[in-house]
Structures are given as C-alpha cells and as structure tokens.
C-alpha cells in the first residue's frame, strides 16, 4: 500500500530552531552562528570581537566534539560560556542549542556567539535558530575553498577571511578568493582580517555591532 507523507525531513529540527529564535527574540538577543573549518580561527575571532565590543553583553555557546579547550579560553574573558559536547556529531542542531540556552541567564544579554563544530559541510543544513550565519575561512586553507564548498559559502550572511598575516608565506590568490565569493554569494560581505595581528578587525566588529542594533 502506498501512503503519501509529504514532510520536510528537517522539520523536527526546524521546529526547535523556531523555538530558539523565539526565545532569543523575546530576550532581545542577536545570535550569530559561527561556522568554519577546524583551525580557521573561529574561537580567536570570537575572542578578539568580544574584546572590542565594549558595552555589549556577550555570551558564547561552544560546540565541540569532545573537549572544553575553547570554552576554557573564552571563560577567561569573563563572559558566560556554555559548552556543548556533541559526542562525535559533526554539527550542532537546534535541540542542542535549546538545551544550552536553558542553562543560561538570558535577560541581560545582547549578543550570543554560537561556535559550531569545525566543519565546512555538515552544519550547513541545520538551522540552529540563529539570526545570521557567519563563515570563518583562513588563508592557509587556500583560495579554492569557496569553490570547493559552494553550499556553505552560498548559505552564509557574512564571510571572514582570517590569517591575512600569512598571505605572504603561502600561495593564496586573494583575487580568486574574492571573485569566487562574489560568484557564489554576492550578498555576503567579506572581512579580511588577522586575529593574530588584530589587523582590520574594525569593519568586522562594526558589522557585528550593526547586527545588534538593527
């Protein structure tokens, strides 16, 4: 017997993502889903951004397969950090974020960074209730990453190219990176920064601030 079903596979996740979004909205919190390859500098970017945000009250949800290394780093900045250990899972889902939010004091928060598991594929299909998706790419990964991971680059609202201080040491063609990003996603602003030397972080921080006040 044939039975019609017609249901979105991601529906269960999306329902939870909407609950997360609702909770965040009620508390006036802007959430940024920070994605990128392992070692691209997601945690460093969050650290550097928090240090420059001044009055904005920030918290972080740290997604990590097994460790608390990143959460420990961020705790030193005196912000609320909640660790999610995904236990092998390659991405965060909305249910995990919902559970993390339940452990947090939300009333005073303006901005929430959700650092996803380092991965350029899996997190793409999982709405976690964020306001905007940000992708951190880095110079040592190579200028071809935009073309090799088009879905991820297409779906994000902003791209940060980190480790620009290493540009002179590796074969990285910035022109190719920029033009392939425009080809795939002309809406996403590109911020070319170095978290190591703190170069050019201002325009990125201004973008983050504009999300909070918008």
């Amino acid at each position: 017997m044939k039975v019609p079903v017609v249901e979105r596979i991601m529906r269960a996740n999306d329902v939870l993502a909407d609950e997360v979004r609702q909770t965040l909205r009620e508390n006036g919190i802007v959430a940024l889903n920070i994605m990128g390859a392992p070692g691209s500098g997601k945690t460093s970017l969050i650290e550097q951004t928090i240090a420059r945000l001044g009055e904005t009250t920030v918290a972080v949800i740290e997604g990590d397969i097994a460790t608390t290394l990143d959460a420990d780093r961020l705790s030193k900045l005196g912000v609320q950090v909640v660790q999610i250990n995904t236990g092998g899972s390659c991405h965060l889902d909305a249910g995990m974020v919902k559970m993390a939010l339940a452990q947090m004091k939300l009333s005073t928060l303006d901005l929430l960074f959700i650092e996803n598991v380092g991965n350029l594929v899996c997190p793409a299909e999982f709405d976690i209730g964020e306001y905007k998706k940000v992708l951190v790419s880095s110079v040592p990964e190579g200028h071809d990453k935009v073309q090799k991971y088009p879905l991820m680059f297409r779906l994000v609202d902003a791209v940060v190219l980190n480790k620009t201080d290493l540009m002179q040491h590796v074969d990285f063609d910035l022109g190719v990176f920029r033009s392939s990003l425009t080809d795939i996603n002309s809406r996403a602003p590109l911020f070319e920064v170095s978290c190591k030397t703190a170069d050019n972080l201002d325009s990125w921080v201004a973008w983050v601030r504009s999300q909070v006040t918008s």
Binding site: M1, K2, V3, P4, V5, V6, E7, R8, I9, M10, E125, T182, S186, R187
Partner: peptide
C-alpha cells in the same frame, strides 16, 4: 544580475512510502 533566487535543488523531503 547577481541577485539570484534558488527555485529548486534545496529539497529535503519525504514524499511517500510503501507499507503493508
């Protein structure tokens, strides 16, 4: 123009099933 909307290719749907 670079303002492009994806009209299909993003589907993740269960359509039907065969049961007894």
């Amino acid at each position: 123009g670079r303002e492009v909307e994806i009209t299909s290719g993003r589907e993740l749907d269960v359509e039907s099933m065969e049961v007894e």
